[in-house]
Nucleic acid binder design. Sequence first.
DNA 1: GCCGCATTGTAGCGCATGCTACAATATGGT
DNA 2: ACCATATTGTAGCATGCGCTACAATGCGGC
Lengths: 163, 163
Amino acid sequence: MVLKSKNASKPGSPPPKSGPETAVYQRQTRLQHAQERAQDYVEAIAELIAGCGEARATDLAKSLGVTHVTVIRTVQRLQREGLVTTQPYRSIFLTDSGRTLAGKARARHEKVVTFLEALGVAKSTARADAEGIEHHVSDETLKAMEKFLRSSRKGSGKPTRTY
Amino acid sequence: MVLKSKNASKPGSPPPKSGPETAVYQRQTRLQHAQERAQDYVEAIAELIAGCGEARATDLAKSLGVTHVTVIRTVQRLQREGLVTTQPYRSIFLTDSGRTLAGKARARHEKVVTFLEALGVAKSTARADAEGIEHHVSDETLKAMEKFLRSSRKGSGKPTRTY
DNA sequence: GCCGCATTGTAGCGCATGCTACAATATGGT
DNA sequence: ACCATATTGTAGCATGCGCTACAATGCGGC
C-alpha cells in the first residue's frame, strides 16, 4: 500500500490520539477517496501512455469523464505526491511509484473484471462495476476470487469474448 | 463574442440530473459519494434504532468512526433530503424514505456479505469489504451473486430476507 | 436550587472534487 | 509571419466531509 502521509498540517495542535504520520488505518474516508482517485488517474494515465504513447490532459479528462480543469488540479496533487511528473504545457508522465501503483491497480482491476465475468456478468457491466469495486476488495477477498477463477476455469478455456 | 450569461449552477434550483442522453455516463463522483454516505448513515441509524431503540448522535459517531460534528452536519443534510427527522437535542428518526433506503441498503449489504462468505472469505473480512463494495455492485452483478448463491447452496443456507 | 458533565449544536478551518469563465501557450493552416 | 483553433493553465465558486474549539442545552449529583 503506497500511502504517503503528509505530516501534520496543524502547527502545534495535534492531539496524539494516533500518530498522524503513520496513520491512515482508521476510517479516514476522505483520504481513502483521494487514494482511489489517485489510482484511477494513474491507471488511466498508464493506459493512455500504453495506447497513444503519451497522456495528455484532455484525453485524460475525456477518459475520466471530467473537465480538463479537474484533471489538471488532480494531476498537480499527484505530482505533489510523487506519482507523476509534468511540465507546463507538456504531457503527463508516471514516476516509478506511479508506474508501480498503476501496475497494481491494473492487475487488481483485471482480476476483478475477470471474476465478475466468470460470475456471469456482462463484460461492460463487469468493467463498470470493477471500477468501483476494485478499491474495496481486500487481499483476502481478491485471493478468494482467484481461487474461484482457478476452480471454475476447468476446461472452459477463456470465456467467450463478447465485446 | 463570448457568451457571458450562464445559468449553470444555482444553489437553489433542482439538480438537472436528467441530462442529455448523449453523455449519460457522467461520472458525478461527488454526488455518488454523497449517496453512499447517505446509505451508510441511514443504515447505521436503522441499526442503532433496532439495537438500542434510538439513534443518538454520539452513538452514530462512534459507530461510523467520525466525530459527532460530522454526524450532525451530515444528518442535517439527510434531513434536508427527507431521509431523517430530528429536533434539537433529540435523537434521530428515519422517515419512510429513510427506512426504505435503509432496508434496501441492508438487503444489499447482506447479500454481498453472504456472497463473499460463500466465496470463502472470513466473516469479518466479508463484512468489512461489503461495506465498501455494496455501493458499487450493479443490479446485474447482484443478481449474478444471488444466482451463484442459489447454485452453491445445496441446503446449507439461511434464507436471505429480501426486504 | 445549583453546578458539573455529557450530549448536542455552531463557528471556522482545511482539503478534495467538481464546475464555468477566462487567460496563456502551443500548433497548424494560409 | 500571422491568425484561428485547440490545448493547457489560472481564478473563483460551490459542495461535501473531516477536524478542533467553543457555546448551548439537558440531566443527574450535590
